[in-house]
Design a protein around this nucleic acid. Structure first.
Length: 679
DNA sequence: AAATAATTGCC
DNA sequence: GCAATTATT
C-alpha cells in the first residue's frame, strides 16, 4: 500500500473499532499496528482511581479481542514516557505513520503537540482526528470568531451549525496486521491484590467494552429515553443512560449517540409526542454539556484547577479535614447527602442530581475548597472525567458566567423530598435510618423522640446530628462572600496602584494542599457531632500541583473495600505530593485573534489553520490557511503574550447571575498572565 | 377569570 | 436575575 511502512494507530480514550477515524485511516493506509500506552505517572496528580483503572483494564481486553477477530492485536506498553515509547514502537515495527484521535484535557493538549513535533522531526507522518466530539472546539464560535462563554449559546450554536456532525464510520471489515514480531507487549497491571476483591463486585453491575456500550446505547434509546424528562427528578439511577463511563473511554462515539437520538427525535416530533421530544432535548443537552466541558478545557486549560471567574480566588475556604472526612463517609447528618456519599463510595456511581446535591453541600454548606471535592470524585467515580468534573464543580462553585449563584444554599431536606419523596433512596444507603417514617426521613433531627426510638435511631450516636445547621451555613456563607468581595476589592486596589503588578495573584497566597489523610474510615464507632475547633480559613484559592507540572510519582495506598462490612480504609489521594512549582504552559489564545497579540512574556500555543472535517493536517509549527478554510490547532509554544480572549472583552455579555451583576468588576474570567514562564 | 404572588429551574 | 410555572387571592 503506502510506500512500505505500516501505520501505528495509537489508542487512548477511543477504545472502539466502530466510528474510529484514526483506526479507519490506518486501515485505509495499509498494515496497522494498534498500540495502547499506559503511562499513568504522566498524569501525576490525576492518576486514575481504582474503579477507573478497573474499567480501563476490562475495556482494553475487550478491544484486544475485537482487534484480534479483525486480524491484528493490541500492543500494550508500560511506560513512564509516552513519546519515547511511541518512538520505540515505531522503530521496532518500521512504521512510517502515526494516527490518533484528539483529546482535550490539558495534559493531552500539550503532549499531543509534542508528539507531533518530535515524530514529525523524525520523519514520521502524524495525523490526528476528531473522534470525541460533534464539533471541534475551534469550530464553534460567535460571529466575531470568539468562543462562547455560556453553555446555552454554545449549545444553541452547535445545534444550528451550517453542517452536520460527521456521520459515524462503520467498523473495518478486516485489519492487515503490521509486523509486531519485534514489538512485544508489556503486561499492564491495573490493580493490586488488595483491590481485587472490591473490583470483583464492580463486574456484577457493569460490563466495560465497546460492544456492551453499544448495547447500553440501544437499550437506553429504545427504553428509558422517552421517559428521561419525566424521570429526571428521581434519585435512583435506573432511569439514566448509564453511558458516561462508556463515553469517557470512547467505547461508543458521541456522534453515533447523537445520530441515533436524532432519529428518535424526528420520529416523536412527527407523532406529536411532546414528552418524547422534551426528553430528547434534555438528553441531548447532557451530551452538549460533555461537549462543552471539552470546549471549556480547550479554551481554558486551567479550568480543572482554577476558578474561571477570578473572584473565587478570594473566597475564604474552610480548610477543615474533619468536615471533609464526614462528607466522604456520608456522616454529615443530612440523609440525602449521606446516602449519596455512601452510594458513591460503594459503587463508584451517582445520579447526576445527587452529584449536584453532594457537591453543592460541599461548597456552600461546608465551604470546603472545591478542588478537594473534585479530587475525591476523580478517585471514586467510575466515569471520572477531568473535563466534565471540572465543569461540574465550577458550575456548583459559581465560577462560570452562567453558574448557579454562590449565595443560594440548597436545603438538602427539601431536595430530599423532591428527589426521593418516599425516602427509598435514603433507606437503601443508610440502613441506620431504614425504619424511620417518610415524614422524618429527610430531617430526623426534627423527629419526636418517640419516633426516633421506635426506629432505632439515636441521633449523635448511630446517626449524626447535622454537621452544620443550614441557617448557620447561610449566615457563614454571606459573611464569607462579603469577605471575598472585600478581598477582591483590596487586591484590585493594590494592582491599580501599580505596586504589585503581576504578582498580586500569587504573592499573598498560602497554598492549600490536599489533606494528608484522605482516607475513608467507615468505623462503626459513632461519630459524634464534634464541633470543629480548627476552622482555618484560607484567603486564597486552594492550590495543588498542576497536572502538567507533576510528572511526579504519587503514592497511592488503597486497601480493600468491601460493601457489606464497613470497617475498611480507602486512601483516595496520594499521601505525599511533591509540589513542584513548575510553569504551566498551555496558555491559549483564540485562533482568530492571534494577530491582536502583542508583547512577549508568555509561551502560548498557536493555531494552524487546516481542514475542517475530522482530519487535520500533519504537524506544522506555524499557522497556515488551507483551502477549505476550517481551523485546526497545532499546539506550538510561541513566545508572545497570552491574553485570555474573554478577559479582554467587556463585562456585560452573557452574565445574568445575580451577584455578578451586583459586582460587575468580577465578570472577567481569570487569565493567566501572572504565571511563571516555561523554559 | 384575571391579576398577582410565590416558587422553581436555569451547567 | 429572569423566565416559566404554579399557587393564591
Amino acid at each position: 500500500m503506502s510506500g512500505g511502512g505500516c501505520s501505528i494507530v495509537w489508542f487512548r480514550r477511543d477504545l472502539r473499532v466502530e466510528d474510529n477515524p484514526a483506526l479507519a485511516a490506518g486501515v485505509r493506509a495499509g498494515a496497522v499496528v494498534a498500540v495502547f500506552i499506559w503511562a499513568p505517572e504522566e498524569e501525576g496528580h490525576y492518576y486514575p482511581g481504582r474503579v477507573s483503572r478497573w474499567w480501563l483494564k476490562q475495556s482494553l481486553a475487550h478491544l484486544d479481542s475485537s482487534l484480534r477477530s479483525l486480524g491484528t492485536a493490541l500492543i500494550t506498553k508500560r511506560s513512564s514516557d509516552t513519546i519515547s515509547s511511541l518512538l520505540e514502537v515505531i522503530k521496532s515495527t518500521g512504521a512510517t505513520q502515526l494516527f490518533f484521535n484528539h483529546l482535550y484535557d490539558p495534559l493531552s493538549l500539550v503532549q499531543d503537540h509534542r508528539v507531533k513535533e518530535v515524530l514529525t522531526a523524525q520523519g514520521v507522518t502524524v495525523r490526528s482526528f476528531n473522534a470525541d466530539l460533534l464539533y471541534e472546539p475551534w469550530e464553534v464560535h460567535d460571529e466575531e470568531g470568539r468562543p462562547f462563554r455560556t453553555f446555552a449559546l454554545f449549545w444553541e450554536r452547535c445545534l444550528s451549525m451550517p453542517y452536520d456532525p460527521e456521520s459515524p464510520l462503520l467498523p473495518p471489515k478486516r485489519i492487515i496486521s503490521g509486523d509486531v514480531s519485534r514489538c512485544p507487549s508489556d503486561t499492564l497491571v491495573f490493580e493490586d491484590e488488595s483491590e481485587k476483591g472490591s473490583n470483583a463486585l464492580l463486574a456484577r453491575a457493569w460490563s466495560p467494552g465497546w460492544s456492551s456500550a453499544d448495547k447500553a446505547l440501544t437499550t437506553f434509546i429504545n427504553g428509558a429515553l422517552i421517559e428521561y424528562s419525566k424521570n429526571r427528578r428521581k434519585a435512583d439511577s435506573a432511569t439514566t443512560s448509564f453511558l458516561s463511563p462508556h463515553l469517557h473511554f470512547g467505547e461508543v462515539s458521541v456522534r453515533k449517540v447523537f445520530h441515533l437520538v436524532r432519529i428518535k427525535q424526528v420520529l416523536w416530533a412527527n407523532e406529536g409526542n411532546r414528552a418524547g421530544e422534551e426528553s430528547v432535548n434534555l438528553f441531548l443537552k447532557s451530551i452538549g454539556l460533555r461537549e462543552y466541558s471539552r470546549y471549556m478545557s480547550f479554551n481554558h486549560p486551567h479550568s480543572h484547577e482554577r476558578p474561571l471567574l477570578g473572584h473565587l480566588k478570594y473566597f475564604p475556604w474552610v480548610v477543615d479535614e474533619g468536615y471533609f472526612k464526614a462528607w466522604r463517609q456520608g456522616r454529615t447528618g443530612y440523609p440525602l447527602v449521606d446516602a449519596g456519599m455512601r452510594e458513591l463510595w460503594a459503587t463508584g456511581w451517582l445520579h447526576d442530581r445527587i452529584r449536584v446535591v453532594v457537591s453543592s453541600f460541599f461548597v456552600k454548606v461546608l465551604q470546603l475548597p472545591w478542588r478537594w471535592g473534585m479530587k475525591y470524585f476523580w478517585d471514586t467515580l467510575l466515569d471520572a472525567d477531568l473535563e466534565s468534573d471540572a465543569l461540574g464543580w465550577q458550575y456548583i462553585s459559581g465560577t462560570l458566567p452562567d453558574s448557579r449563584e454562590l449565595d443560594r444554599i440548597d436545603n438538602p431536606q427539601f431536595e430530599g423530598y423532591k428527589f426521593d419523596p418516599h425516602g427509598e433512596y435514603v433507606r437503601r444507603w443508610l440502613p441506620e435510618l431504614a425504619r424511620l417514617p417518610t415524614d422524618w426521613i429527610h430531617h430526623p433531627w426534627n423527629a419526636p423522640e418517640s419516633v426516633l426510638q421506635a426506629a432505632g435511631v439515636e441521633l449523635g450516636s448511630n446517626y449524626p446530628l447535622p454537621i452544620v445547621e443550614i441557617d448557620a451555613a447561610k449566615a457563614r456563607l454571606q459573611e464569607a462572600l462579603s469577605q471575598m468581595w472585600q478581598n477582591e476589592a483590596a487586591s484590585r486596589a493594590v494592582i491599580e496602584n501599580g505596586t504589585e503588578e503581576g504578582l498580586g495573584d500569587s504573592s499573598e497566597s498560602v497554598p492549600v494542599a490536599f489533606p494528608q489523610d484522605m482516607q475513608v474510615e467507615m468505623d462503626p464507632e459513632p461519630v459524634r457531632n464534634i464541633p470543629t475547633t480548627t476552622t482555618i480559613r484560607h484567603y486564597e484559592d486552594q492550590m495543588v500541583p498542576s497536572m502538567t507540572s507533576s510528572l511526579v510519582r504519587t503514592e497511592y495506598d488503597e486497601s480493600s473495600v468491601d460493601l457489606r462490612n464497613s470497617a475498611e480504609n480507602r486512601a483516595e489521594v496520594p499521601r505525599t505530593v511533591n509540589i513542584i512549582e513548575e510553569p504551566v504552559r498551555e496558555a491559549i489564545i483564540h485562533p482568530l485573534r492571534q494577530t491582536v497579540q502583542s508583547n512577549n512574556t508568555m509561551p502560548r500555543y498557536n493555531f494552524a489553520v487546516g481542514r475542517r472535517n475530522s482530519e487535520d493536517s500533519t504537524a506544522e509549527s506555524s499557522s497556515s490557511v488551507m483551502k477549505d478554510g476550517g481551523i485546526v490547532p497545532v499546539w506550538s509554544p510561541s513566545s508572545s503574550n497570552f491574553s485570555d480572549p474573554f478577559a479582554a472583552e467587556d463585562n456585560g455579555i452573557g452574565t445574568s447571575s445575580s451577584y455578578l451583576q451586583r459586582h460587575p468588576q468580577s465578570h472577567q474570567l481569570m487569565n493567566w498572565r501572572g504565571l511563571p514562564q516555561t523554559g
